[in-house]
Amino acid sequence: MSADVSVRLAGLALKNPVMTASGTFGYGLEFAPYGDLRSLGGIVVKGLSLKPRLGNPMPRIAETPCGMLNAIGLQNCGVEKFLRDKLPLLPHSETPIVANLYACDADEFAELAGVLSGAAGVAALEVNISCPNVKAGGIAFGQDPAMAGRLAEAVKKRAGSKPVWVKLSPNVTDIVEIARAAVLGGADALTCINTLTGMAVDIRSRKPRLANVIGGLSGPAIKPVALRCVWQVCRAVSAPVIAVGGISSAEDVLEFILVGAHAVQIGTANFMRPDMAFRIAERLPGLMEELGIESLDSYRGSLSS
């Protein structure tokens, strides 16, 4: 008997808990040469906005110990082009394709949700209330519980039958407060966590390493922070939690399931090698068997004190 890696997540049935994180897997198609997209639990595409966005000036990325900083600035092709040119090419009938939403105010978020609610190939909407990169908007929603709640409500109202995931920022005093507010507002699931704000400088040129000066830290360096956030949020809310932050192995996946996560997303690790998410998804059942874990449902949240 092989281990049961299937997951039920807020109305979605996932083959396995291994999804890819927004902004780290392009629109999915870029990674098709490196594995079977259908073998993934889900694919969250690059953050989409109503209109195409140019993004930030160069340099946008900097390597840091066991991680990286990015200030991409939500460059994207816009929701219409995504629905017309990208989505039809994705295996949406076999693997949930999740749209990641970015906007500057609640009305725009709601309008974006309205557009995506009609797209048959989109399985769920993930609302990025936490992107620290864009000066106008974004960050404010993620840091204020009342605004986070109102935003979740505004998106949920226009999302039709699509489950709404709210993606939380770790750059807050109390992530639990924001998590509760988002669930009260109507979030069906929570994604934890987005990047941590950070900075890197060059002592010789005396310049910041990112043109934007500040960027978002990701990669294995942030895994302990993500684990702490997921554990806290899982204890506080009943909505399922999707864990993301520094995951780069099947062992890491189980760590997050152990503290209560329903599923996970692979982010920066996709850059280490483009078949990373596929490898982790393939490895997981074998690892569970080695550890005597029959199903994720039985293992979830079983951390002893």
Binding site: G23, F25, I61, I72
Partner: peptide, 16 residues
């Protein structure tokens, strides 16, 4: 240009 993924996945390597 500095590259993180090399396959079009990160948008880090762009040029105007």
């Amino acid at each position: 240009n500095r590259m993180a993924c090399g396959v079009g996945g990160c948008l880090g390597c762009v040029e105007k």
